[in-house]
Amino acid sequence: MLIEQIPLKNGCALGLRFEMQKYPLLVIRAEKGFLMCGYLNVSAAEALGDAAAKVKGVQSFEDMLEATVVEATKFARDLGVEAGMAGREALEKMF
């Protein structure tokens, strides 16, 4: 497992990378929510009350920041996160 600090304009996020068999499982956690890769389930995050946004087709933290958000929980949307925005922009709204 790799843990990395990711400096952003509104704060410092925490990147978590787990090496799986073919592709990495990636999460970047901000103060009020997190950005997830395609391995994780938005419905589960919604049910647990988390502010979460999902990006797909990523293999690095930088990919996640550049990728387009495809889905977000109600709690993330309440913070201003929307499908179609960049992962970096979504994370900035989660501080």
Score class of each variant (00 low, 15 high):
1 M>S: 14
3 I>M: 02
4 E>L: 14
4 E>A: 08
4 E>H: 06
4 E>T: 13
4 E>G: 02
5 Q>E: 15
6 I>K: 08
6 I>D: 03
6 I>E: 02
7 P>T: 13
8 L>I: 03
12 C>G: 10
14 L>E: 08
15 G>D: 01
16 L>W: 07
16 L>M: 09
18 F>Y: 11
19 E>Y: 03
21 Q>A: 07
21 Q>P: 11
21 Q>W: 06
22 K>P: 03
26 L>D: 05
31 E>I: 10
31 E>G: 03
32 K>G: 08
33 G>K: 05
33 G>L: 03
35 L>Q: 02
35 L>G: 02
36 M>N: 11
37 C>H: 01
37 C>P: 09
38 G>D: 00
39 Y>I: 01
40 L>D: 14
40 L>K: 10
43 S>D: 15
44 A>F: 11
45 A>K: 12
45 A>T: 12
46 E>H: 04
48 L>E: 13
50 D>A: 15
52 A>F: 08
54 K>G: 07
56 K>S: 13
58 V>L: 07
62 E>S: 13
63 D>N: 01
67 A>M: 07
72 A>G: 13
74 K>F: 14
76 A>E: 11
77 R>H: 08
77 R>A: 06
78 D>Y: 12
79 L>D: 01
79 L>N: 07
81 V>D: 05
81 V>G: 07
82 E>Y: 13
83 A>P: 02
85 M>R: 01
86 A>L: 04
88 R>L: 03
89 E>R: 12
89 E>D: 15
91 L>D: 10
92 E>P: 02
93 K>L: 09
